[in-house]
């Protein structure tokens, strides 16, 4: 409680365990919340293992998502394939700079930023004194909020492939990158959801005990 300015008492400091779902508090030692039926953990250190596991599969899936084509476009008798970055460059050279930026932000900047942010947060809770918790919690909030928006590119592929089916004049089919990209987004979302943000607020290793 020596944090400057505010004097905040946590449930853990008072010997209580709080339910992360319905915010009810119970005496320490209880393992399920009677109100909503969730499992109770004062601090979920095991959650970090899940965070790392999901994050690693997420990163692995992101590699083929960038190497393989996202779209296969057939116009008359020419078939062309485009990857995520290739497609964005195409758009930019055809004058659609704004959309190219949206695609690049949603499919490259956000996913890579998320990998870094989740990795950093998971490492930072081991030595919490390095950056003020307020900023780290804000980072967590942003990651949790923004992660789903990477799905845009998958939906674009879905809409284009359903819509552009015009015999031999033009047709668009999804490429294998669509699925690995979707999986990468899903896995990183699971990584962010698994993280227990209360770890951010605990002061140095001293509170790392029990459960």
């Amino acid at each position: 409680m020596e944090s400057p300015g505010t004097e905040i008492l946590t449930a853990r400091e008072r010997g209580l365990v709080a339910c992360r779902r319905c915010a009810k508090v119970w005496p320490m030692g209880r393992d399920t919340c009677d109100r909503c039926g969730s499992a109770l953990h004062s601090r979920d250190w095991r959650s970090l293992q899940r965070v790392w596991a999901w994050l690693v599969v997420g990163i692995i899936c992101y590699i083929p998502a960038n190497l393989f084509p996202m779209l296969r476009t057939t116009m008359l008798f020419n078939t062309s394939e485009s990857t995520i970055v290739g497609g964005a460059i195409d758009l930019a050279t055809h004058g659609n700079l704004g959309i190219a930026v949206v695609i690049l932000v949603a499919s490259v900047v956000i996913p890579v930023g998320k990998f870094l942010a989740i990795g950093y947060l998971a490492l930072s809770v081991r030595r919490p004194e390095r950056l003020r918790p307020k900023q780290r919690h804000k980072l967590y909030h942003v990651v949790e909020f923004i992660g789903r928006w990477s799905m845009i590119d998958v939906f674009v592929v879905a809409i284009l492939s359903a819509l552009v089916q015009l015999n031999f004049a033009a047709s668009i089919r999804p490429g294998p990158a669509a699925i690995t990209f979707a999986l990468s987004v899903i896995f990183t979302m699971l990584a962010a959801i698994s993280f227990d943000p209360r770890l951010i607020w605990d002061k140095s290793g001293s509170e790392r005990t029990t459960r």
Binding site: R12, R20, K24, V25, H137, I200, W201
Partner: peptide
């Protein structure tokens, strides 16, 4: 009493 207490689900503050 515990019934009148709420803990922040994000940071555990009471």
């Amino acid at each position: 009493p515990l019934d009148e207490t709420i803990a922040c689900p994000q940071c555990d503050a009471l």
